[in-house]
Design a binder for these strands. Structure first.
Lengths: 197, 197
DNA sequence: GTCTATATGATGATAGAC
DNA sequence: GTCTATCATCATATAGAC
């Protein structure tokens, strides 16, 4: 017996598929250029079902941004990253950031596209940046402790440069092989902190 | 005699006002969220006149991006910028970039918003970045010539970091007082090139 | 919860007077 | 070149059967 479950071929629930479809289409075409009809088709649900789960199209955007929050996964990006060499640690951190951005590219694209029209997106995006500037600065200080580097000197600015470069190459550019740039970037940033690299 | 000129109070021509209105509204709300009706109202022209000058709404976007080309003014950003001190030269260059971005903020916002939906915008944006990475690298080399710096070392990467940071603080952030960050950034970047700053 | 049919309003674009 | 009136289409959202 397969039981009374209606559609076995469509494993996820309708609501999840609607969120998935909206996330993808909002990222590619933008919020306003995406019709609820297109979302319903991509999700393989009838058009009316969207408004059973979400009162308005805007609520659907809010749902995507809150339930698929990139913040959560980004917060774990620095965990279990213990390397004696600060240079290797920073390179690994940068690659993890880029990888996480890649996995959540759709969310990042939505933020970049919509933050000017939707204030709640703007503030979420801004908090995301500031939180990670702080985190990277702390990470830098941790990495450089008990080293020949001078901590606390320009740490905030270096962390900001680190993050801003990752934002551009992770969201705006589609760098397929960022390792070379990341290595060079880390060398340049570390140079300021130490005698030599 | 004031002559036969119809509207003296509206000094610019209708076509120009349409472009102005479209530029502003596209930047604030995005292309798809901006209606031709809203553009006509902001431009103080009847709705039908837009389609006398531009065959479609998309042609209006293309008109804004081609006739208000930010490239032209950005190309002059490095002219008449001769300073014996490389640090001062780079800080001045960065502030000029930020100032030009500020003056053409609407165009920059449109590019950032629409480059994923409109391939021609994407390529224009990409060319813009690459051209200026090259220019900044050349500018760096010029500035560092006959100095104690070692030119050609990481110049491309440093130029890229320079530009990418300016893109983020110029278009994504709305930094009111970027001088402090710019000075720190230049120090960090120059550090890699010389013995000390 | 799922689906169909449809209401209601707005949108890009056109026709044609002046 | 400017302006008005309007069309055809498509959007979000709803009502109600199943």
């Amino acid at each position: 017996m397969v039981g009374s479950k209606k559609r076995d071929e469509r494993s996820e629930e309708a609501r999840t598929r609607i969120l998935d479809a909206a996330q993808t289409l909002f990222a590619v075409h933008g919020f306003n250029a995406t019709t609820t009809k297109a979302i319903a088709e991509q999700a393989e649900v009838p058009g009316g079902l969207i408004f059973y789960y979400f009162p308005t199209k805007k609520a659907l955007l809010a749902g995507v941004l809150s339930e698929r929050n990139i913040l959560v996964e980004l917060r774990t990006v620095g965990e279990t990253l213990i390397t004696p060499d600060p240079r290797a640690a920073l390179i690994a951190l940068a690659l993890r950031y880029l990888n996480t951005l890649k996995q959540h590219k759709e969310l990042a694209c939505i933020m970049l596209r919509e933050f000017r029209s939707h204030p709640e997106v703007a503030s979420q995006f801004h908090e995301l940046r500031e939180e990670h500037v702080q985190f990277i600065a702390s990470f830098l200080q941790e990495s450089l402790r008990a080293e020949q580097y001078e901590p606390m000197r320009d740490l905030q600015v270096i962390a900001r440069m680190f993050l801003y470069n990752l934002i551009v190459i992770g969201i705006i550019e589609d760098a397929t092989e960022p390792l070379h740039f990341v290595e060079n970037m880390v060398d340049i940033l570390l140079c300021r902190l130490g005698k030599n690299v």
